[in-house]
Structures are given as C-alpha cells and as structure tokens.
Amino acid sequence: MDAVQYIEFSDGNKMPIIGYGTSLADKEDSLIPAVEAAVDAGYRHIDTAFLYKNEPIIGKALQKIFSKGVVERKDLFITTKLPVNGFKEVKYFCQKSLSNLQLSYVDLYLIHCPMASKRTELDEEVYTVDETGTYQGDYTIDLVTTWKAMEELVDEGLVKSIGLSNFNSLQIQRIYDNARIKPANLQVECHAYLPQYELHDFCKKLNISFTSYGSLASPGFVEYMVNAGMGSQKERLLDDEKLKPICAKHGKTPAQVLLRYLVQRDIAVIPKSVKSERIKENIQIFDFQLDEEDNAALRAMQKNLRIFDFDFLKGMKDHPEYPFNIPF
C-alpha cells in the first residue's frame, strides 16, 4: 500500500485522508478485530461518536493495539462527536467519551448535528422523544454558546481540533463569524449521488477541511432503517451501471472507485466495514488515478439523493436548526 495522504487543518494539525468509520458497529466480537485489522491494513484514522454506542469497545481495541506495540497513541488520529443532548454539557460529554475511549485527548471533536435534543437523566438517550414518539428538540440552545464550550476543550488539551457535522452553510458561517478558534473540519454525507459541490466550495473559502461520511451511499444504513421501519429503500450506488467501465479500466471495485473520486477532490473518507477483506480493499485507493473522462462520468451520476435526512423521528424537520431546508 502506498503512503496514506493527509489533509492539513487551518490550525496546523493533520488528518489522514482515509479513516476507518464505525457507525452501526457496536458488537464487541466483531468490532475489536475489525479495528485491529484496520490498523494492520494501514489506517491511522478512526472515526466514532458518542451516538454510536461503541466508544468503550473501540477503547478496548486501542488498548489491545497499544499493548502489542503495533502503534503508539501519537500515530493514530481519533475523531469522536458531541451528541445532540449534550450541547449544554460539552465538557461532561467530552470527558465521558475520553473515558470510554481510554484516552487523554482526541484529535478531532465534532458537534454531531445542529438539532439540539432535550436532555434527560439518561446520557444514552440522545434523541429524546415524548410518549407519541415525537422528537423533543431543545429550542433554547445557542449554537455559538456551544461552540465557545468546544473552544475551551482545545484550551484544556482535551481535544486537538474542533469541527462540525451535518451543519449547513448558514450555520457554519454563524459559527465561523463568532469563533475564536475556527472550525477545522466539516463532516457531512457526500458521495457520487450527493457530491456536495456547493458546500465543499463554501468550506474551501473558509479554509475548513471536508470529510465525507456515507461515501458509498451507506447500503448498510439503508437496510438498517428499512428493517427498523424508519426509512424506505434507496438506490444502491455500488450497483450503478455507470461504474462498471471505470472499474474495468482500472481493475478496481466500485467502492474503490467511489472512494478515490472523493479523495481526488481533497475530501477525507471514512468507509466502514467489519469484514477484514473489505477493510483492506477500501484503503487500497492510492495506487491509481481517475482521469478527466472518469471524473466526468462520476459527476454525471449526481442525483441529489440524500440518505441521512434526519427525518427518522416525527417532528425532526420542525426543529429551528434543521439543516436541510436550504440548498447547501
């Protein structure tokens, strides 16, 4: 495998452009070996969140890796995220994540979503609902105040860099204009069906780096939501016929082509799998280059198909900070 590339943040810190994503991976018997396989395959960037309920498992995996001497803490870039029920208790939730991960700091801490939820006594009840199943948003939250608390985490050495996730351009600008420490990174859904050109260009102007989640249009998440009765079947990006000629041309899989497409746009990717062969395959994207013909074909696949629309609970779209009511 060729050397993994890095993205440099506005604060001078660097993040590997490919990371190992862990959303919907919360089984210890599969996630621990998967994290080990990812590090063995060359990943040096691991992405998680309090919401995923897998930080303690990742903490165990990291300690196992460190004890074997495979890598040291300084060799890994760890991202986690502030849950939407924690906007008034930023330090508390950051410290809870650090305890879960068995770390003294994380490299990147993101506000996971702008739609604050009402707080209950149960920390893990991130998306609070009432007896009718309606989302209980906290409308008293000022995102700028939450950002100021994020800045204090940097001051105290609990996190190296801070950023945002699932924010729109107006929300990003509001944070940016009022920030002492500017957002270093934005993590949003981004793939060939939802390429996010306008939002990416907007972030580049503010010197905010860009991370794609759902880079393969998240077939696992779609299946999970359909099975849970909270979503409908979406088109499978990985099965798109337009990918076949590009894959044949380069001798690569659809996943590798789709990840390479984003990386060549200077967008970080965090593909998720618990299968060791798929984990290895996803990082093998630095030994080929898509040409302009390939990129034109991939650009033509745009459908503005959003998988993660944050409308899986009744009333979510009524939140005043619902991010997808504007074009980008």
Rank of each mutant, 00 (worst) to 15 (best):
S169C: 12
L186P: 08
L206I: 04
S218Y: 13
S165I: 14
Y224G: 10
P183V: 02
E198F: 01
R180P: 00
F202R: 14
A179Y: 08
Q233F: 08
D177V: 09
S161Q: 05
S161A: 09
C190N: 13
Q171M: 10
L216H: 12
S209R: 09
A192T: 05
I172R: 06
N178T: 02
M225D: 10
C190K: 12
M230E: 15
L186I: 13
A192F: 01
N227L: 14
Y197C: 01
E235N: 06
I181H: 11
I181Q: 07
A217P: 07
I162M: 05
C203V: 10
F221D: 14
D201G: 05
S169T: 15
G220S: 03
E189N: 11
Y224Q: 14
G229H: 14
D177Y: 09
C203T: 11
E223R: 10
V188F: 04
C190S: 12
I162C: 08
L237H: 03
L206V: 06
S165V: 12
S209F: 00
E198V: 00
L199N: 08
E235F: 00
V226A: 08
I175Q: 06
Y193P: 01
L237G: 07
C190A: 14
Q196E: 03
C190P: 08
Q173I: 09
T211W: 07
L164F: 11
L164M: 13
I208H: 05
R174P: 00
I175T: 04
D177P: 12
V188Q: 06
S169Q: 13
T211L: 08
S165Q: 12
G231S: 14
A228D: 09
I172V: 15
S212T: 10
Y213T: 06
Q171E: 04
K205T: 00
Q196D: 02
G163I: 03
L194A: 00
Y176D: 10
M225C: 13
E235R: 04
E189C: 12
G214D: 06
G220N: 11
A179C: 11
T211P: 03
I162T: 05
G163C: 09
Q187G: 04
V222Q: 13
I162K: 04
N207M: 06
R180K: 15
L170I: 02
G214R: 08
Q173Y: 00
N178F: 03
C203Q: 04
C190L: 07
I172S: 06
Y213A: 07
E235H: 00
Q187I: 01
A184G: 12
T211Y: 07
S161I: 09
E198P: 00
I172K: 07
V188W: 02
Y213L: 08
V226K: 10
C190M: 12
F210C: 10
A179F: 13
L237R: 03
E223F: 01
P183F: 02
L216M: 15
L170H: 12
K234I: 03
S161R: 02
N168T: 04
R180F: 05
Q173H: 04
S209M: 00
G231C: 11
N207P: 01
I208M: 08
Y193L: 03
I162F: 08
Q233R: 13
I208W: 07
D201N: 13
